[in-house]
């Protein structure tokens, strides 16, 4: 727990991954983005079987290999060495994206630069003139996967809100985000805008609202509201 003299920072990245993993149903097929989403594999509840998909052609991604037994032909979308579980399958890229674009995957967990209260997502480009544009599979995932959830710090390194009324960075997709897990709260994107479902210990609703660039509705059960 935080010391009284320190500003509470809410949940850790592992807490966020644990909360996201808790909400993934038993039997789900899940694609994980690079960064905080990768931690989700470590927090799947023991009574749940979740199958992880990677865009480059594997269903049934297993844990990282032991040092020295990496195989350069067995990697994930972040080009890191992985293993394949018993019951895994390999396939080519068009089949892999048919799984994504055809609505066969249950959950996509992604990082974000910005999420708007309408569910717009920006996570592929800062739009800077000299940046090398690179999109990978992000636009396919948000367009095709049944449920899109975001794991991200609530604010940028300089304290700017990442949850905003309108994204200023180039969009990955419009109206695609279902839920956001941040270090401060679990927030659903609804037709009424952002709705806080859970708030991290030590964080008040007022602090949460102050660090968010769009209005938030307090959707917690009355007993938890402050």
């Amino acid at each position: 727990m935080s010391q009284p003299s320190q500003q509470p920072t809410g949940w850790s990245r592992h807490d966020m991954a644990r909360l996201a993993a808790r909400d993934i149903h038993d039997g789900a097929y899940v694609n994980l983005g690079i960064g905080i989403p990768e931690l989700v594999t470590q927090h799947v509840p023991p009574d749940h079987e979740v199958i992880f998909h990677t865009e480059n052609g594997l269903l049934g991604v297993g844990p990282s290999p032991a040092a020295g037994s990496e195989d350069p032909e067995l990697i994930n979308a972040g080009k890191k060495p992985v293993t394949a579980i018993a019951g895994a399958a390999y396939f080519h890229h068009a089949d892999s994206f048919a799984m994504i674009r055809g609505g066969h995957l249950d959950v996509s967990v992604l990082g974000a630069m910005q999420v708007s209260s309408r569910g717009d997502l920006a996570n592929w480009s800062t739009g800077e003139a000299d940046a090398i544009p690179a999109v990978g599979g992000a636009m396919d995932l948000v367009a095709g996967v049944k449920r899109v959830v975001i794991l991200t710090e609530h604010t940028t390194k300089t304290g700017e809100p990442k949850l905003v009324a309108e994204c200023t960075y180039p969009l990955t997709g419009c109206g695609v985000v279902d839920r956001v897990y941040t270090n401060l709260a679990i927030i659903d994107v609804t037709p009424e805008g952002f709705v806080a479902q859970e708030i991290a210990p030590g964080i008040t609703f007022r602090e949460l609202q102050e660090k968010t660039g769009a209005p938030i509705i307090d959707g917690r059960p009355r007993s938890e509201s402050q």
């Binding site: 890229h93 994206f97 990978g136 636009m139 396919d140 367009a143």
Partner: peptide, 25 residues
């Protein structure tokens, strides 16, 4: 986008000159 790239290649190989996708809308 990566899935559009893969599908464009698959479509080309299957004699499909164009297709519609929700990706990048």
């Amino acid at each position: 986008p990566q899935g559009t790239l893969a599908e464009r290649i698959r479509a080309g190989g299957a004699g499909i000159p164009a297709f519609f996708t929700a990706t990048a809308v």
